[in-house]
Design a protein around this nucleic acid. Structure first.
Lengths: 196, 196
DNA sequence: CGTCTATTTGAATGTACTCAAAAGCGGTGG
DNA sequence: CCACCGCTTTTGAGTACATTCAAATAGACG
């Protein structure tokens, strides 16, 4: 199990003693996922928070007309879960699958509670990363309210530069809330305008 | 200072001893705000998280064309802040003002840290309410990606029934991401269709 | 009661979508 | 190693949802 990345990620927010690191690592369950494989289907209970050691996952819904809408990408170094379901332990609304072969570390809800009991500092860690995630969804909400599709795309490129050339364009369209056809046309226009 | 509501609100997530309640309440600073009065201007540092004891506040941005976009309402019993600014203590992007005369309790960032040091349970409380807030922004993001304006309005009515008849309609339009004119037309259509 | 703000209404416009089809690209097997 | 297949991207024409701008009406607060 490769634990270097996750420990580094945690060290940015709280300081752990070797003993505490050990407690934490023992609660994690490594898992390999192939491209297109599902970690979670809508309606299931999300029993784990998942840290991505390598590869890239996505969380998305399917609407009444059968269209996919991507809520989040989780490239290397990110956490992903159906937060609603993880918190309530009721059936969720997200599908989670892999865009590329991936290696992840899973932390079950029970193990997380056990972790909080043994090493209360982790309450702080998860509070802080939840706060940061909250802020990014707030910014995204404001983007959706105030920006044109073109500006949302430019923002996406600034925020996720590593994804632009590593995932199919249609997923970016789905994330920013336009059709793949329209994103294609926008990009063509942007090239003509020299914005690209 | 009226502390009943905030204590009840906290009791839903963590159990406090009388001593701990006392520590907490001493860190709060009560404040009265009149309608249209600002608690925070964009660019300022958000030094307090604010709990609304009575009245209603809103957080919003103004875009490049001068249009307001409401990120959040905070009716009685809710917290509000410019989370980005509160976390980083750098200049924020939100304006916060009162839609009605309000009474609030302010918790400064410094006092919050002091609270965490004295009563670590509060890490848990703020983690949990941040998680819930995160989920609601995730749902809102999915609504923005997948629903028509009419369905976003219907969702708003289900989620904030108390606001529908207590705040000007144009603020609801701003929150769901349409112009006031269009919301007015939608409502008329919905009445014709008998959806209302 | 008067004034200021919010809401409604209508016509013209624009941004993004739908549907259909062609072109491009990448992986896999022969 | 090339050819084929499936998936992604591009292109185009027609359409729909929502906006803009302007003006009239309604409503709320001092």
């Amino acid at each position: 199990m490769d634990s270097e990345l996750i420990l580094k990620s945690i060290a940015r927010h709280i300081a752990l003693e070797p003993r505490e690191e050990e407690i934490f690592l023992k609660l994690l369950q490594p898992l390999k996922i192939k491209r297109k494989q599902f970690l979670l289907h809508r309606g299931e209970v999300c029993r784990h928070a998942v840290f991505v050691n390598s590869g890239c996952l996505r969380g998305y819904t399917i609407d009444a007309n059968g269209f996919e809408h991507i809520l989040s990408f989780a490239p290397t170094g990110w956490w992903i879960a159906d937060m609603y379901s993880y918190i309530t332990q009721e059936g969720g609304y997200l599908n989670i699958d892999a865009l590329e072969d991936a290696q992840v570390l899973q932390l079950s809800k029970e193990h997380q509670e056990s972790l909080f009991a043994q090493v209360p500092k982790f309450e702080r860690y998860y509070r802080i990363i939840t706060e940061k995630s909250l802020v990014s969804y707030q910014l995204r909400t404001l983007d959706n309210l105030s920006l044109t599709a073109q500006d949302r795309y430019l923002n996406f490129c600034r925020r996720y530069p590593s994804l632009i050339n590593s995932i199919p364009q249609k997923y970016i369209a789905s994330y920013i809330g336009v059709t793949p056809e329209f994103l294609s046309k926008m990009r063509k226009d942007m090239q003509k305008q020299g914005l690209w």
